[in-house]
Amino acid sequence: MNEPIYVTQPVLPELEAFIPYLEQIWENKILTNCGPLHQQLEKELCEYLDVPFISLFNNGTIALVTALQALDLDQGEVITTPYTFVATAHSIVWNKLKPVFVDIDPITSNIDPNEVEKAITDKTVAILPVHCYGIPCDVALLQKIADKNNLKLIYDAAHAFGCKYQGQSLLNYGDLSVISFHATKVFNTFEGGAIVCHSAEMKQRIDQLKNFGIVNETTIIDASLNGKLSEVHAALGLLQLKTIDETLEARKKVDQIYRKLLQDVQGIKCISRLNMEKDNCSYFPIVISEDYPLTRDQLFEKFKVQNVFARKYFYPIMTDLEIYQKYSAETPQAQLLSQQVLCLPMYPELTIEQIQLIVNVIKSVM
């Protein structure tokens, strides 16, 4: 039996390099509440990502919940994609807003702006698209739609760390962008996330909301959550930033090898990534069509026999989950992609031999 190959594997620095940061925390005796390492990481992330303001969070889900709260949205509808992780939809419901699911563009796997426009009603207050797999949404058209209808535009950019598109960071589009630093992401702080915003005033509001809504010892402005990132998590982030460019370059090489080896396999389509000034190659999804001898689920099981653990990501779509069935919508493209997609293992330390084994499993039934 081969050694297991998982769909992802966290990038971690040498343990010895982490110890001096821990020693600094022990010396400072500051563990949380926007300590010195937290402040330093915010500063360095702004510089690296080329964004004006960033607020760190303990995870991306709390960041999404807080982003919607920060915009003071009245009760109403938020248009979003069913082809996403549950945190996107959960954040809407947590804010007592109604998710309205619309279909995707099958080429990019992102929300279809034309479907967004058709779904707008007098109850619509915001649009929440997802840069799926780190592939940019149609940011220009979505912004045009939001401006025309006076809607807030919040991007779930969990997959989009480090991506640059049309001359700037992909995180700079919309009113707010939310990123994840979960262990499975391109850049991780064990667990974490952040909100990117465009003004000091908005950052101050977000910083207050992630700290129970506290303004000072006697003033609390909102009933909000505790979303602060600890000093230990910030320390790992500072260390991860030192090698992030090497990580992205290694991911790019894995992506290129996959595409070369799979380019002529009938019935297997590699989801294309739009031309970007900087890509993070965060996932490697393939689409298994009827021209391939096996279904997606059959290939998924065949991989497991070989100790290869791919992922049906995203499956099922939101409206197929029992808790969201009451928000059902006609989204045939999202439904089809969800039934055909499979994310292959993707991480910097994946070897050529492992990639070849994965591809051989795919080709073995041809």
Rank of each mutant, 00 (worst) to 15 (best):
N95E: 10
K96R: 15
K98G: 01
D105K: 11
I107V: 14
S109V: 10
I111V: 11
I111A: 08
P113L: 08
P113Y: 07
A119R: 03
D122T: 11
D122A: 10
K123T: 02
V125Q: 05
V125R: 10
A126I: 05
I127N: 08
L128V: 10
C132M: 14
G134P: 01
I135M: 07
D138H: 10
I145L: 00
A146K: 04
D147R: 11
N149T: 01
L153W: 03
I154G: 04
Y155V: 07
D156C: 07
D156N: 15
F161N: 09
G162P: 11
G162Y: 11
K164L: 10
Y165S: 12
Q166M: 14
Q166G: 00
G167F: 06
Q168G: 00
Q168K: 15
S169N: 10
S169G: 08
S169K: 08
L170G: 09
D175W: 06
L176K: 05
I179M: 09
S180R: 01
H182M: 09
K185I: 00
V186G: 00
N188E: 13
T189H: 06
T189S: 15
A194C: 07
V196R: 07
V196Q: 08
C197I: 11
H198C: 06
E201M: 13
R205C: 02
D207F: 05
D207V: 10
Q208R: 14
K210C: 02
K210W: 05
